[in-house]
Design a protein around this nucleic acid. Sequence first.
DNA 1: TGCGACCTCCATACCGGTTGGTATGGAGAC
DNA 2: GTCTCCATACCAACCGGTATGGAGGTCGCA
Lengths: 210, 210
Amino acid sequence: MQQQAASQTKLLQSALTTIRRKGYAATTVETICDAAGVTKGSFFHHFRSKEDLVLQAVEFWNRFTDDVFAKADFAKAPDPRDRVLGYVEFRLAILDREVSDFTCLLGTLVQETYQSHPAVRAACDNGMSGHIARLTADITAAKAIYAPCASWTPESVGYFIQAVLQGSFIFAKAKLDAQVARDNLVHLRAYLTTILPNDNQGGTETCRIQ
Amino acid sequence: MQQQAASQTKLLQSALTTIRRKGYAATTVETICDAAGVTKGSFFHHFRSKEDLVLQAVEFWNRFTDDVFAKADFAKAPDPRDRVLGYVEFRLAILDREVSDFTCLLGTLVQETYQSHPAVRAACDNGMSGHIARLTADITAAKAIYAPCASWTPESVGYFIQAVLQGSFIFAKAKLDAQVARDNLVHLRAYLTTILPNDNQGGTETCRIQ
DNA sequence: TGCGACCTCCATACCGGTTGGTATGGAGAC
DNA sequence: GTCTCCATACCAACCGGTATGGAGGTCGCA
């Protein structure tokens, strides 16, 4: 009973680290079992198939990352603009770790499954969209204060932020170094301060131009 | 004699399309052979191994893309700023095709090979860096005219552009739709026009602030 | 001109290792 | 006794890669 869910959790965690390092197709069931210290019998007791595992791993990942970002300091800032810029700053800060520790499971997964594993693709899309929706809420609030008249949509900015991150991860992997990612986030921050200007002379102003 | 290199080229082309659709690990040698209409005997006559094939496929890809961008109209614009913005515009225009037709082989490849296949990782890094170097040349020329005093480096902007593209590809795959990618490139264009302002009052000016 | 040696290119058959998945049975909690 | 949890043993399919041999072109030479 005490070890009941322990094996399952260990398998999910091994799946996360292994897939983030080697991708989905190159990750074998046995590799995950070995890393988790359990046997295949245990694996197929908890998961119907390899695809079932990866779908649960995506769920697991979503809960994990939601928790990380919800508990971070920047999320408690009263000003929504600070929360948006704080998010980017937070991402910058964790770039000091190993490459496989700051990259995104969903981005890695979807690249090699989007055509062959529709359920995995949908799960990744769902996970990324949810994360961006939370980010978009802050952007919406910040826009209402700092750029009420701007023509861009908050959601498109949420996706833009996420795209810069995902693209930066690719270069971090290509170079085995996070410096390009850091530089990219500095550019991203510069853009965000441009479209959310701090010198708010328009806070309560009404928009005249359509 | 006439069919000599034909098989090799067909194998390389099948490799490109298959890997872009399913990734490296999920692509089998036989799948590539079937798609190319040749047998495994032919495959292993032209390539020592699967990894040898993919390395040559990266070379093949580099030659192909270099050619595409060199021959495009935007590359002939006299103003370097027009060439930089034209590059983004060109990328926007080709988003109308199938997802697997506008995404990048190197970005897909490096995600799943960066830890397990060092030679492939290096080849991808090399290919992307070369592409960015050509882009950076135009950015450097544009900066000298439109933003000589700005503190950003042209190379970092080249990488930023490329990161936005790579990240956009991931979302195009996740959603099986290019709309997010389009929106991202519009944001990218907005940023580029911000850091390369058109109202050049500083063209021949000397930079006073360090 | 004819002939034989040799070469490139590739088709077929095959192999050893690995993979995702199954069948079975047993240990311990309730 | 029955349930959950899992260890062992096993399997059929598949994978990258090899061995072999043959079709057809080329070159040297008498």
